[in-house]
């Protein structure tokens, strides 16, 4: 009672010895309440110490353990083994190059986050002596959900456009830009537009919506992207059809 043997089929890749990835099967005695991360930890501790993967908090707040579980981008610490039948297939997050085993190369993602200037760019610099920025609950709610991103990259793995067009800046980066654009303390939208209103910005999105589906924090990047598209379109038509209006 409380124990079940799970078969994990894990994608392995050793850059020093393998020409390409291959699957390896592990039989893991699991407790009923285990998540896939627990099963992986058991493999590493008791069966195969060479298995490499990222993880940290084990409570779905750090965003480290994102991987494909039965073809779906999930946090391994949030994928309960009791929800799966038969063999559980574990692969590195889709659309990212594989560094080793379940570890992906995330440099592209980190670059893109930086490009959107993810920090408050105040309209006017406010000296500390002048006190805090004041913000109403309504102003907070305009950006709060977009601030909940834990950078887990599940959205990039779910987004077919990112898979097809690697230059696409992607859901999390645009949601992050939107978080700052929507913040009443910020005045940097015009600068961020250079990145997110570019061709490789919001315009590569075709509103599949998979990103919002898989997001563990309910950030709704898809919604953020459509809002950016609409705002950018209004901007464009204003700028080109009514140039006398101040931006």
């Amino acid at each position: 009672m409380g124990e079940r043997t799970i078969d994990l089929e894990v994608l392995r890749y050793n850059p020093e010895t393998d020409s390409e990835p291959h699957f390896q099967r592990y039989s893991v005695p699991c407790r009923e309440e285990w998540v896939v991360l627990d099963a992986l930890n058991h493999v590493k501790e008791a069966i195969d110490p060479t298995l490499s993967y990222r993880w940290s908090c084990h409570m779905a707040v750090c965003g480290s353990c994102g991987m494909m579980i039965n073809g779906e981008p999930k946090l391994a610490c949030k994928a309960f083994v009791r929800d799966y039948e038969g063999i559980i297939r574990v692969e590195p997050l889709a659309h990212f190059p594989v560094e080793r085993d379940l570890v992906t190369v995330i440099d592209d993602f980190m670059d893109k986050l930086k490009r959107v200037r993810p920090y408050i760019i105040p309209r006017q610099v406010k000296a500390v002596a002048h006190g805090e920025h004041l913000q109403t609950p309504a102003e907070l709610n305009k950006f709060k959900q977009y601030s909940m991103c834990i950078n887990c990259m599940l959205c990039y793995a779910a987004c077919p456009e990112y898979g097809l067009i690697p230059k696409y800046i992607g859901p999390a980066a645009i949601a992050l830009a939107h978080r700052y654009n929507q913040d009443s303390r910020d005045g940097g939208r015009a600068q961020r537009q250079e990145e997110i209103a570019a061709t490789e910005g919001a315009w590569e999105c075709s509103f599949v919506g998979a990103c919002s589906d898989v997001c563990p924090e309910h950030v709704d990047p898809a919604g953020a992207i459509q809002q950016v598209k609409i705002r950018s379109t209004v901007d464009w038509y204003k700028e080109h059809l009514m140039p006398w209006l101040k931006p």
Binding site: T199, T233, W236
Partner: peptide
Amino acid sequence: MARSNKPIVWGPFAA
């Protein structure tokens, strides 16, 4: 990175 002219085609698409 420069802002795209995609709105030309996207505006009528959305409408």
